[in-house]
Structures are given as structure tokens and as C-alpha cells.
């Protein structure tokens, strides 16, 4: 049916020129492609090239060298190695926390809420309409020296002359743990929504079938619900993991000296140290590290799924 009508419309549309139809489509998408190529691919290429250059004073010196990368393997490059590993680790822990907390919430919205699901979606997203910066700042208020937790502990007498601690707790803020908590809060909606969508899509008759065939609730969850929700869960993991590795705001505001991440170090090369080539090399290494981590993760998932299919 469609084939016939398309053939017919072809006859009407292009009697003379016979220009293929997709050329029109290409014109439509060309401006967007031009932007992505000009503003994403060209700068990426530039930063890869610059990462093989050196800096002398205020100018870039365009002689090819592996110096910037070699630094990462030398004793002086220890700080950067630590920062890269730490960024991946903090991001991994935060992503795990986000997804583990988000999953039950998504499950609740998909299976327990019958009416007014939209209200729950709105409820979930409202906190994210405040500025990201202010949300991160809010955690500073909670965890800080005169913050909500310390004041609360003071009020109940745990902090004070007779309490367990004499002074307000300083270890709450400015460390990798406070960065992790803040990230887990800031990225919650990005995890709940994709998981919710894939749970919502599950055909309920599969669940009935599993129950009818004698699966217990837990068994049914692990054998039917969870595998079917994997696309959304994987999307959530990637959506949170990729941007948080290079995060700058959160470590700067709540990380303190021990909580800084590779993003801070990259930014410093461009702002304070004025060493663009090293910053460029660190950016490339960070992208490479993220890509490797994501590929390893996807491969692990793929293998597990294959194994699952055997059983």
C-alpha cells in the first residue's frame, strides 16, 4: 500500500529532474551537521593536536612531542595518575549509589502507582529546577561546620561539653565522601526516569506468566523484571557516569583539597598554570579512560546476558 502511494507521489514530484528524495533530507540536516562538525569534531581534533605540542611562555610551540603523555608515567606525574583513578572511582561509587537508590523508586512508580503517575514524575523533577550550583551549595549547608547535621547533633547534646564530641564535626565536608553524596543527589532524576520508562514498558502478562508457572516474587523479579529493565538501567548508568567523571562544580564546592578531581586539574592547566598542551593531554586521557571504562562495562554486561540466555 505504502509502496504504491510512494511510487505514485514520486511520479508527481519529480517528473523532470529525477533528483533523489533524500537530497532534500540532507539539506534539512546539513546545518546541524555543520555545527556538530565545526564546533565539536574540529575542536576535538585541535585538542588532540595541541596535546602533542608544548607551551613556551604565552605561546604554543607546534613541535610534535610525546612529553605531555610521558609525564603521566613519570614520578612527577603521580598527582595526575592519582586524580584520574580517583575521579573514575568517585564517579563509579556515585553512579552505583544513584542507580541503587533510583531503581526501587522507579519500580515503585511503575508498579505500585496506578493513577496519577504524572504527578510522581513532576514531584521527582521539581527539585531539579533549582540551579545545579545552589543544589550543590545546599549540601554545603547540610554538612558544614554550622550546618544542619552539626546543629542537630548540638541540639540533642551529642556535640557539646558533655557530649560525645566537643566540637562540631569537620570531617563531614570537603572530602571524597561529600562529593559522592552530593553527586548522588544531583543526578537522581537522570537515573530514575530511564529506569522507570523501561519498567513501564514491560508487558505485564510476562509477570503473570512467571507467577502462574510457579516463580516466587523474588525469582520473578530476577528472572523477568530485572533483565527486561536492563536497557533503561544501562542508560541510567552511562548517563550518570560519563558526565560525573569530568565534573568540576561539585568537587570545587564540596570536595576541598582532598576531594578535587581530574576536571579541576584540567581547568587549572588552562586558567592558572597556562599549560594548554598538558591540559589537552589530560583531557584526552580522561576521554580515553571513560571510553575504556564504558566499553569494559558494556562487555561485562554482554557476557552476563549471554550466560543468562544459556540457563
Amino acid at each position: 500500500m505504502t509502496a504504491i502511494s510512494e511510487a505514485a507521489s514520486d511520479q508527481y514530484d519529480q517528473p523532470a529532474t529525477r533528483r533523489p528524495e533524500w537530497v532534500d533530507g540532507l539539506w534539512l540536516i546539513a546545518p546541524t551537521l555543520a555545527i556538530v562538525v565545526g564546533m565539536m569534531l574540529v575542536p576535538l581534533l585541535a585538542i588532540i593536536i595541541v596535546s602533542f605540542w608544548t607551551q613556551t611562555g604565552f605561546d604554543l610551540e607546534a613541535t610534535w612531542t610525546l612529553e605531555n603523555y610521558a609525564l603521566l608515567f613519570q614520578p612527577e606525574g603521580k598527582l595526575y595518575r592519582i586524580l584520574i583513578v580517583k575521579s573514575l572511582w568517585v564517579s563509579l561509587v556515585a553512579t552505583t549509589a544513584v542507580v541503587v537508590l533510583a531503581y526501587p523508586m522507579a519500580y515503585f512508580m511503575a508498579f505500585r502507582i496506578q493513577r496519577g503517575k504524572l504527578i510522581w514524575i513532576i514531584l521527582l523533577t521539581v527539585p531539579f529546577w533549582t540551579s545545579y550550583l545552589l543544589r550543590v551549595f545546599a549540601w554545603k549547608v547540610i554538612l558544614g561546620f554550622n550546618g544542619v547535621i552539626n546543629s542537630g547533633l548540638k541540639a540533642v547534646g551529642i556535640i557539646g561539653p558533655d557530649g560525645l564530641f566537643e566540637k562540631p564535626l569537620e570531617f563531614l565536608l570537603y572530602n571524597p565522601a561529600s562529593v559522592t553524596i552530593t553527586l548522588a543527589h544531583a543526578w537522581a532524576a537522570y537515573a530514575v526516569l530511564p529506569i522507570y520508562v523501561s519498567l513501564e514498558k514491560i508487558d505485564r502478562s510476562y509477570l503473570e506468566a512467571a507467577t502462574d508457572l510457579g516463580d516466587s516474587k523474588w525469582k520473578r523479579f530476577w528472572r523477568v523484571t530485572f533483565p527486561l529493565s536492563l536497557p533503561g538501567t544501562i542508560a541510567a548508568i552511562l548517563l550518570v557516569f560519563i558526565p560525573t567523571v569530568g565534573d568540576y562544580i561539585t568537587p570545587t564546592l564540596v570536595g576541598g583539597p582532598s576531594g578535587i578531581m581530574i576536571g579541576n586539574s584540567i581547568a587549572n592547566q588552562f586558567i592558572k598554570s597556562n599549560n594548554a598542551p598538558l591540559g589537552a593531554a589530560l583531557s584526552c586521557v580522561m576521554m580515553l579512560a571513560i571510553t575504556v571504562a564504558v566499553c569494559l562495562f558494556l562487555m561485562a554486561i554482554g557476557k552476563k546476558r549471554l550466560k543468562g540466555a544459556d540457563i
Binding site: 574540529v42 585538542i47 589537552a280
Partner: peptide, 15 residues
């Protein structure tokens, strides 16, 4: 969407 903003920012700055 999958390139960290930090990288987009510094590479655009360099260009």
C-alpha cells in the same frame, strides 16, 4: 551528549 562539558569547554577555548 557523551563528551564531558569540561572537554567541550577547553577544546572550544583552544580553537
Amino acid at each position: 551528549l557523551v563528551i564531558p562539558y569540561m572537554v567541550i569547554g577547553v577544546s572550544t577555548l583552544v580553537i
